[in-house]
């Protein structure tokens, strides 16, 4: 019996669409190695991005570049606009002004807000990941762990149950979930496990860029440490570029290379993470750093 892959579609494929990615981009993970600092073009470029909610400022005139293999932390207190910024650059929230461009796998630089919806969705589920603070927002809670991980593969054309299941099992192992939980629903998982499952679900297609919104928020400290450690390892192994929003400077210190500090919707300081934390320049950054509790 034939699957639909061989039936002829009268509808044109989206540019850079399925045809090119006929085999699920599993093998495209960049393998071992260091972040490619010598790549001389940013992966994602936001320029002059502002978002207004009526007269209230979400974020204002933010310009940032994200380079391949780089982890960028966006820090600030609640209401500082960091999540608004994250949503604006990940096409989840249309900015009021400004442009966001992305360098596609084929090297072309595209304006994200001028892309068709189909192509944008394809990009989001192959080359990107999005890790929500609350795993329930990023998982299908009533679908097994294996299917949660396998969904992106199936959405990009994988049609071999055995292969999908094997890949899902492999990824569960990589995020330290026992393989015998593959048929359990995330409802039966602890918070930390759910978060790790969400990460596996995002990484299975070998994305180049992952957005994370407070990935360790709401977890116990010991669970947080384990998750951070896992993330550190995956980020290095896969050469991922990551934009991580967090209010926790310890998370930023541990995960990120570079930091953006936001206050009242504006970027008030940027720099190498250890420079910003060890020699904060802006008054607000100094306040943030001086407020860290020493354990």
């Amino acid at each position: 019996m034939m699957t639909q892959s061989d039936s002829v579609s009268p509808y044109p494929e989206p540019a850079n669409g399925r045809g090119e990615n006929a085999n699920p981009p599993l093998q495209q993970a960049q393998g071992k190695g260091l972040p490619a600092f010598d790549e001389d073009k940013p992966l994602l470029s936001a320029s002059g991005v502002s978002k207004f909610y009526g007269s209230r400022i979400g974020c204002e005139d933010v310009s940032i570049d994200i380079w391949p293999g780089e982890v960028l932390a966006v820090v600030g207190e609640s209401g500082s606009g960091k999540t608004t910024l994250l949503n604006c650059i990940s096409t989840r929230l249309m900015p009021t002004t400004g442009t966001v461009t992305y360098r596609m796998r084929d090297g072309h630089i595209r304006d994200l807000y001028r892309m068709g919806e189909a192509e944008r969705r394809f990009l989001m589920r192959t080359d990107w990941g999005f890790v929500h603070q609350n795993p329930a927002d990023g998982l299908r809670m009533t679908v097994s762990a294996g299917a949660n991980v396998g969904e992106r593969l199936m959405a990009t054309g994988a049609r071999h149950y055995g292969d999908i299941r094997a890949t899902a099992g492999d990824w569960l192992g990589r995020v330290e979930i026992a393989e015998d939980r593959i048929d359990d629903q995330p409802r039966a998982f602890s918070g930390g496990m759910r978060q790790r499952l969400q990460i596996a679900r995002n990484l299975v297609t070998g994305p180049r860029l992952v957005f994370m919104d407070e990935p360790t928020g709401g977890l116990d400290v010991s669970v947080q440490a384990r998750l951070l450690d896992l993330l550190r390892g995956l980020v290095t192994d896969l050469g991922l570029a990551v934009v991580v929003v967090t209010h926790d400077l310890a998370v930023a210190r541990l995960l990120s290379h570079r930091m953006v500090v936001m206050k009242d919707g504006r970027v008030i300081e940027t720099g190498l993470t250890d420079r910003v934390l060890d020699d904060p320049r802006a008054p607000y950054t100094q306040l943030l750093v001086s407020s860290i509790l020493q354990a």
């Binding site: 260091l34 600092f37 380079w67 440490a225 384990r226 951070l228 450690d229 550190r232 541990l254 290379h257």
Partner: peptide, 26 residues
């Protein structure tokens, strides 16, 4: 630029600090 500093640290300048900033579980 921060990226250049990172490249310099990776390839050119090594540093033995006074204290080790330990990463959990590694």
């Amino acid at each position: 630029e921060p990226r250049q500093v990172m490249a310099v640290r990776r390839d050119t300048i090594g540093y033995v600090s006074q204290f080790l900033r330990a990463v959990p579980r590694v």
